[in-house]
């Protein structure tokens, strides 16, 4: 079970969310049941213990606002990127993740409990529901985590971001906090079932980006804003940028990219 998170473009604000083959909840509730809190606390402890072995360093924590809505935009190279963002920062992060997790028994119970917002990567319309849920998180003043590439990078390069990120930023007015994740690809590369216990991982949190200069009425603003965020992520992660979308491995029939040699 591998974790991917996605933020597909969802620009058409007015259109409806029909035609999803999966049961994607149209909205999430931010009130947690006790069992979720227990699950959350347990996994937080586990991640904390593992992070010691991974020699996790977090730089720029002060850049993450402690209150108010914020969008955390990170590169994505490993399954463990998600728990690191969820548990190792100074505030609770609601992550957007692929809807495929709702299809297997373990993750179906676990991931929504942790505050994951499922994103159907099968199409634009289906993704809209997830984008609205993400907007709901921001409107509640919470911090939303996104992997703008929409999937993990199979070769370690940084790929083009989906413009759903810009939609969320324009709609919510929330600042975007770029995050560069390093070293997790060695701890648990895509395709490996369990993480190694030793590693050298880092989270670099950049300064919040304000986007008042953009005019959302101009369609080009969405792509520009998204590229700008990817540039900042590249500066933090040190990855080389490739201006095309990363390919997703999923049940949607999309051909997976070959794994890099070990």
């Amino acid at each position: 079970m591998l974790q991917d998170a996605a933020a597909r473009p969802a620009e058409s604000v007015g259109s409806d969310t029909a035609n999803s083959s999966r049961s994607v909840p149209a909205a999430i509730t931010l009130t947690e049941r006790p069992v979720n809190r227990v699950t959350y606390a347990g996994l937080r402890l586990l991640t904390g213990a593992l992070a010691k072995g991974w020699q996790l360093t977090v730089e720029g924590m002060d850049n993450l606002p402690t209150t108010g809505p914020a969008i955390l935009a990170a590169n994505h190279v490993s399954f463990i990127d998600s728990p690191l963002l969820m548990f190792e920062l100074r505030r609770r992060v609601w992550l957007m993740g692929k809807a495929e997790y709702l299809e297997t028994r373990l993750t179906k119970a676990l991931f929504p409990a942790l505050g994951m917002i499922p994103v159907d990567r099968g199409g634009r319309k289906a993704a809209l529901a997830a984008m609205r849920s993400g907007l709901g998180v921001l409107e509640a003043g919470e911090c939303l985590g996104i992997f703008p590439e929409g999937t993990r990078s199979r070769d370690g390069m940084l790929y083009r971001g989906h413009t759903g990120l810009a939609w969320l930023a324009f709609k919510s007015g929330a600042p975007i906090v770029p995050v560069g994740i390093t070293g997790t690809g060695e701890v648990q590369p895509p395709g490996s079932r369990l993480p190694k216990l030793r590693g050298d991982c880092g989270l670099k949190i950049g300064e919040p980006l304000e986007f008042h200069r953009y005019r959302p009425k101009d369609r080009r603003a969405y792509r520009n804003l998204t590229d700008d965020v990817m540039f900042e992520i590249a500066q933090l992660s040190g990855q080389r940028y490739v201006d095309r979308y990363a390919e997703t491995t999923s049940s949607n029939g999309i051909v997976p990219t070959p794994r890099p040699p070990d």
Binding site: P9, E11, R124, T163, R219, Y222, R223, R244
Partner: peptide, 11 residues
């Protein structure tokens, strides 16, 4: 782009 129609909203 690259012989294929782009996603809506892309260059």
């Amino acid at each position: 782009e690259d012989g294929l129609e782009v996603e809506q909203g892309d260059r």
